[in-house]
């Protein structure tokens, strides 16, 4: 099980790859769309990469609820395989 910080850090690397935002700017309170240059198509890339990195399934219906990095970290934390 990855810790909160491990998940944040992993997502930060993904956002850096997809949108070019420096990883240390990808903090829990940041909005993907408003703060991190992640548009709707790039968000799909982030989700697919996160699924692979953390071994979780993020349903399409859930993606709209993941507005901030914190939302995504919380979803991944609570859905990781035990």
């Amino acid at each position: 099980m990855a810790s909160t910080e491990e998940i944040r850090s992993g997502l930060a690397d993904i956002v850096n790859e997809v949108a070019g935002i420096p990883a240390d700017e990808v903090q829990l309170d940041k909005s993907f769309i408003d703060d991190l240059d992640v548009d709707s198509l790039s968000m799909v890339e982030v989700v697919v990469a996160a699924e692979e990195t953390f071994g979780v399934k993020i349903p399409d219906d859930e993606v709209k609820n993941l507005k901030t990095v914190g939302d995504a970290v919380a979803f991944i934390e609570s859905n990781q395989a035990a």
Partner: peptide, 10 residues
């Protein structure tokens, strides 16, 4: 199919 890029079409 999950690994097809959402940027493919554009």
């Amino acid at each position: 199919p999950r690994r097809v890029s959402p940027l493919s079409i554009p």
